[in-house]
């Protein structure tokens, strides 16, 4: 092998080394960039989780606050309305993420036992909770629709021979309608005398 051949080979190897060094630098830069992006993405994920938790907390407050107040005003302290969120779960098999779901429940008794509202009782608690829920959802609307609710045979499922619960439920509707922040106008078709008692205007047909 001549000196000339050796020099040519050396030049070739130097070129290859320089090429590899450039590639290494580029790969390093890409790695650093990807590392930073991954860190930022993790940070964003944590931030999003916090924002989601905060949003859920606020939605829960807005949705269950009035409902719990209404239920307790009618049925006493041992019932509350609860909203439970199930967080999304990653399914690796189908590479899909489930959606967040929310479930409405009643909490009954001193130990706040969760109960499916539809299995709870005669349906009176559902009547009261749904009334409060509809008003809660209306207050969350932007822009709000007109403050008018039309009701047919509301509170008919309350089962109380003493009629005290009917009276308290009617008072609850009166309070919602006269609350300065809500000022809901109710038009109710009913045969319940308790609702007539709290009405500003009664039409007897």
């Amino acid at each position: 092998m001549t000196a000339q051949t050796l020099r040519t080979k050396l030049d070739y190897l130097k070129g290859a080394k320089a090429q590899l060094e450039r590639q290494y630098q580029e790969a390093r830069k890409a790695h650093i960039l990807a590392y930073r992006e991954a860190a930022a993405s993790e940070e964003a994920k944590v931030f999003l989780k916090m924002a989601a938790a905060k949003t859920q907390e606020q939605i829960k407050y807005h949705i269950t606050g009035l409902g719990t107040m209404a239920l307790q005003a009618v049925f006493g302290e041992d019932i509350a309305l609860d909203l439970q969120f199930s967080n999304p779960v990653e399914d690796e098999k189908i590479n899909k993420r489930s959606n967040t779901t929310a479930k409405l429940l009643f909490l009954r008794g001193n130990n706040k036992q969760p109960v499916n509202p539809l299995d709870a009782d005669s349906g009176g608690a559902c009547d009261v909770a749904s009334e409060a829920l509809q008003v809660s959802l209306w207050t969350m609307q932007k822009p709000r629709t007109r403050n008018l609710m039309v009701r047919d045979e509301r509170l008919k499922n309350i089962n109380d021979p003493s009629r005290e619960m009917h009276e308290r439920a009617a008072e609850m509707i009166q309070q919602i309608s006269h609350n300065p922040k809500i000022q809901m106008q109710y038009i109710i078709v009913t045969m319940l005398p308790e609702l007539e008692d709290i009405a500003d205007k009664v039409f007897k047909l």
Partner: peptide, 14 residues
């Protein structure tokens, strides 16, 4: 709008 609660009693109809 000052009339907040209007009740239509349908007892006789039924």
């Amino acid at each position: 709008s000052s009339i907040k609660t209007i009740v239509i009693e349908n007892l006789n109809c039924i």
